[in-house]
Write a protein that binds this DNA or RNA. Structure first.
Length: 557
RNA sequence: GCGCCCGUAGCUCAGUGGAUAGAGCAUCUGGCUUCGAACCAGAGGGCCGGGGGUUCAAUUCCCUCCGGGCGUACCA
């Protein structure tokens, strides 16, 4: 239970008892909103409930605030309750309770911050899912970082999380990939075979073809094209996926499962689900193709699921089967898809599809991260696999580093149209806020090392000695973490983490500046012990936050 | 044209319908003789794109206009 929940209960009890005593009129059901005031003099938490009740109660809001404040029962968390114009009730946390939290944090250890809002519920996070037609480029990094962090946060909120990469190995793009690969293979073998049109002209496929010729031999050179492709396809797909996997690991991203689109066709799942929709009268045939009758569900247009001519399912077609698999077969309570914003047209279709399955569309959360505008020294870079203009994630990591890269992408909300200047990221690396956060961790580690070197034991300490403003400020910041995790998980907004990390690092530096931890003064040993425990708690909170963001927590820098 | 997203300090971006709108970077001023100065303290910098509306209260919700991004395929 969060602090805000506790306070909401106290306010509800106060309201009820005041009404029972006749000092406030009846109000009916009200929602009690607890918020955090911006000004420190307004306390740690507040409620504007009196302002919302004023009209129906026909009373001055300030008077209502006064009555509620006076009627609030005592609670160990609360130190002071006041009322303020125009109609707020303000709460200040009690110092003794804050002090006790240092111990609570240390006891929770590396689990500090976890909440249980997702307990008993399963969630799948599907992210990146780039066509395996070449290496990841920088445009894919944002979704990778958002998806992996979101998965971490959901796990910290108690969800049973599955991280999944959807491998689009069955569509048109793969056919173009294999066609191009065939030409490159033949070229590598000395044959004059031109590139197909369309093709993937990048160097990547040239290198891959040379490797395949070397490792698999030239046995496919004399065969029909379709046979040669059948020979080369499995290995080329495997290697391309492996390259993607390896670079994602370097970026701090890993998966529980790689799910292949082709398996939906091979297993008959696609046909099965199509039949289901046909039985529900949601499939129509027109112009030689089969369409999902989205117009019957309120959408503007129907959507092709099986093409005319050669036939075969469209991307949306297999996505029908895939989401059936996610919700019906694997029974996930929630599914999160992290997509680039260029897919936004699909959102309404997917939600319509869930309705067709008889499911609540809210169970599918689609995060659209806006396309990143990459620049180099102020000059805009336009990427295209087709035109062979791209910077790979691999190159990005060499220049910027995984931690800085993750922090930068994470600190913007997904829907922001962010800019990323590669040149600036490189030259300004030492001014990057990521190092401010990590330096804070390294500094706390250093303080703890100093204590060990001087033989100071701090397993036990008198936490009531922590009364300095900066000490209490730091404790207040540390114990915000559970609320940050809960909010980030429920709203699928991982970008709160880096901002919290900055604030925590700042509180920690301010504390360090004002409060000597390892003191050599006579008679300050007890204070040192208490402060060492605080340092340990702060370090735990910062380390947990960094770990949720998929970043390292350096002991030294 | 239509749909989705964005517009907040010089730049990059936070901001849960609440009280005096914040951070980092940049600029300027001060601070290292005990634990790490990759730090701290302070200053300047804003009609929150414009205009209407809802509300006790709007940067936040609705409408409209302006500006930008992305879609608008039997590609994914």
């Amino acid at each position: 239970m969060q602090i805000t929940d506790t306070l909401a209960i106290l306010v509800a009890e106060a309201l009820e008892s005041a009404q029972a005593a006749g000092s406030l009129p009846a109000s009916g059901d009200v929602e009690i909103n607890i918020e955090r005031p911006k000004q420190a003099e307004h306390g740690d938490f507040s409620t504007s409930l009196p302002l919302t009740l004023a009209r129906s109660m026909r009373m001055a809001p300030l008077k209502i605030a006064e009555v509620i404040a006076a009627a609030c029962p005592e609670h160990p968390i609360v130190g002071k309750i006041t009322h303020a114009a125009p109609g707020f009730v303000n709460f200040t946390l009690s110092t003794s309770w804050l002090q006790s939290q240092v111990d609570a944090v240390r006891e929770a250890g590396e689990h500090f911050g976890s909440v249980d809002t997702g307990k008993g519920k399963s969630v799948q996070v599907e992210f990146v899912s780039v066509n395996p037609t070449g290496p990841l480029h920088v445009g894919h990094a944002r979704g990778a970082v958002i998806g992996s962090t979101l998965a971490n946060v959901l796990a910290a909120a108690g969800y049973d999380v599955q991280r999944e990469y959807y491998v689009n190995d069955a569509g048109n793009q793969m056919r173009v990939f294999y066609d191009t690969l065939y030409s490159r293979y033949m070229q590598a073998a000395g044959q004059d075979v031109p590139l197909p049109d369309p093709a993937y002209p990048g160097e990547y496929l040239k290198d891959l073809a040379v490797d395949l010729l070397k490792d698999l031999g030239d046995g496919s050179v004399g065969k029909e094209k379709s046979e040669a492709i059948a020979d080369l396809a499995p290995e080329s797909l495997k290697r391309t996926l492996e390259d993607i996997r390896v670079v994602l690991v370097k970026l701090g991203v890993s998966y529980d499962q790689w799910f292949h689109e082709s398996s939906l066709l091979a297993s008959g799942r696609f046909e099965e689900v199509l039949k289901f929709l046909e039985d529900a009268d949601l499939v129509v045939e027109r112009d030689g193709a089969k369409w999902f009758a989205a117009t019957k569900l309120g959408l503007e247009e129907d959507i092709v699921v099986i093409r005319s001519g050669e036939g075969g399912p469209t991307y949306f077609g297999t996505d029908i089967a895939y989401h059936h698999e996610k919700f019906i077969t694997r029974k996930f309570d929630r599914v999160v898809n992290v997509w680039g914003a260029d897919h936004h047209g699909h959102v309404a279709r997917m939600h319509a599809l869930l309705r067709a399955f008889g499911l609540n569309p809210d169970r599918l959360k689609i995060i659209l991260n806006q396309i990143v505008n990459f620049k180099n020294e102020g000059e805009s870079l336009k990427f295209s696999k087709r035109n062979n203009v791209m910077v790979t994630v691999e190159e990005l990591l060499e220049e910027v580093g995984a931690d800085a890269c993750r922090f930068t992408f994470l600190s913007r909300s997904p829907e922001s149209h962010m800019e990323f200047d590669l040149g600036l990221a490189k030259t300004q690396s030492s001014e990057n806020p990521v190092y401010y956060v990590q330096y804070g961790h390294a500094r706390m580690a250093s303080v703890l090392r100093t204590a060990v070197e001087r033989g100071i034991k701090y397993e036990t300490a008198d936490l009531s000695l922590l009364t300095h403003d900066r000490e209490l400020e730091l404790i207040r910041k540390i114990i915000e973490l559970p609320a940050i995790i809960e909010r980030s998980a429920e709203r699928c907004e991982p970008h709160h983490l880096p901002h919290y990390a900055m604030e925590l690092a700042r509180s920690l530096q301010r504390f360090y500046e004002a409060c000597r931890v390892v003191s050599s003064e006579e008679g300050e040993l007890e204070l040192s012990r208490a402060r060492l425990q605080l340092v340990e708690a702060a370090k735990l909170a910062l380390s947990r936050t960094l770990s949720l963001m998929g970043m390292t927590s350096p002991e030294r820098m």
